[in-house]
Design a protein around this nucleic acid. Sequence first.
DNA 1: TTGAAAGCGCTAACAC
DNA 2: GTGTTAGCGCTTTCAA
Lengths: 338, 338
Amino acid sequence: MTTKGAASLKDIAAKLGISIATVSRALQGNPAISKATREKVVQAAREMNYTKNFIADSLRSGQLPLIGVIVPHAVTLFYSSILDGIEQVAAQEGYAVISMNSHESYEEERCNVQSLRNLHVAGIIASVTQETEDFGHFYSLADERLPVVFVARDIPTPDFSSVTADSVEAAYKATCHLARQGCRRIAILCGPSRMKMVVERKHGYIEALHDCRLPVRPDYVAYTDLSPDAATRAAMRLLTRKERPDAIIALNDTLLFAAMKAIKACYLTMPGDVALIGFSDVEYAECTSPALSTIEDQSRLMGETACRILLKHINGQAKPIRKVIPTIQKIRESSRKA
Amino acid sequence: MTTKGAASLKDIAAKLGISIATVSRALQGNPAISKATREKVVQAAREMNYTKNFIADSLRSGQLPLIGVIVPHAVTLFYSSILDGIEQVAAQEGYAVISMNSHESYEEERCNVQSLRNLHVAGIIASVTQETEDFGHFYSLADERLPVVFVARDIPTPDFSSVTADSVEAAYKATCHLARQGCRRIAILCGPSRMKMVVERKHGYIEALHDCRLPVRPDYVAYTDLSPDAATRAAMRLLTRKERPDAIIALNDTLLFAAMKAIKACYLTMPGDVALIGFSDVEYAECTSPALSTIEDQSRLMGETACRILLKHINGQAKPIRKVIPTIQKIRESSRKA
DNA sequence: TTGAAAGCGCTAACAC
DNA sequence: GTGTTAGCGCTTTCAA
């Protein structure tokens, strides 16, 4: 017994008066070991409550059975579902998950990468910050043959595997849906324009306007940072245009609830005066009045998929795999005019 | 350079033609090493992009700079905030966080404990499942001197440290608040009665009824499991009592939104016909109509506190510390009659 | 001021 | 079928 009370191979060997190697082999089910010995060993191991010391193993193999995950916000249903998906798949393969929060800070992200590197994780799944424009820290991971998979937020290079949602198509479908409801003045409430996701969703929106033969009006496009207050003000600005929009597409949770607040503050009805649809992963969207129409990323599935790909890389696959996960449209009251 | 491209002390020693021990000491700032040597070593380490191998270190010390966390549901704002709080404090002290999800299953919880043990984490923070009644797996951790702190859901023994919310007082205050609004038939919508938290909150509720000189009516107490459907049905049952309650206290998010749904389904007004207040950590409670009054656990603070206590134990503190975190009452429209 | 060597727990190559 | 030994990267006596 060592200090911590965990029995080691040595302890078992000593107790049984045989060599450490024999114990090791017996426990691994090595066929060279006689049945009698094996049983004796297994028995003793159980009695002594032996568990293999992963660390010793890892010192040899160079890595721990650990997968590192870096997300920009931990406290959201979106990222916690991704994490949960990752964790489930990882657990099946005997890996544990270490998660770190970059708080949308490039500097923290670099630190996180460094910490995970130091911990000798077997691979990393990351969702980059909004600020991240230099990907050197990820490339140096690749140099060390540490596999990396990007999730949710893509990085602009095909060198890495990634799992993302089809933003363009999702926004396209949402816009068409509103047009079909009879909306003609469809506005879009966006986050910061530096976000790739914003660019893509706006792209889908514009494509759809074209295809539905609706004009593209710059005054119906509002950008805002993601604080609830700024978002509400931005929504108010949209609603006070000379020609008031008759529909709003909100690009995330915060924007969606901000838009709802603004519409109510203007004493407008929904969907009568203004139809509303948003991208969201908050289940409570269906509990509001009116229930909010949403487009959901399948965040859990994104996590699972990312983890499966990472495991492939850990097991030798070299070529990057880029996967796009479809979104799910949930039309509820806030956008249904019929 | 080893296979993985990470330089080791040996590499530095070889390059400089000095011993590994000297390199180790130089890097530790051991004063026995001459300034010249130290600088040479530090310089070389930087050039070779050396990072210390934690695993080797851990093999000696018997533990990794890792804190394990077990939660019953990962995908909730409540637990993800707790995790975030833990993570932040842990990071400050150089620890990373491994989180596992027991999915409210006792069996999984046992597995999680075992996995964390195998990984040789330095300590564990756990929120036990609803099912957990036997705590042997935690006691055996204690036997191995692996510190454990319970968070949010307490276990019925003073042997361990814990950080919990003051459930009794929170429910007491909520009930009194409703009474002050003029409510006389205050009902309570509870989760499973085996949950300690449910028992405590109900206790606070009953105490408050006494102190406010209101009758305690068993038909105003509803228990339900936590699926949205069952919860909604339970809320409907309350609302269809012969003497309809004029207020409902919902003991968590799910129950709160279910109650809201039921009230609307009965075409009752809020807070006019029925006032509603719930325990919740969902920020969107303020975006509903009417905005929902809530009692918030300070989940992030609970996480931070739990982690601080765990670190104390890791650093030698033996005596358990039991901390109660106050709740915060946010009165919004759904319970304000004045 | 520096070096040599032991040892943390385990596996695998090599003996016998 | 089983034992011996080297070695993973690091710290830490013990020597020099």
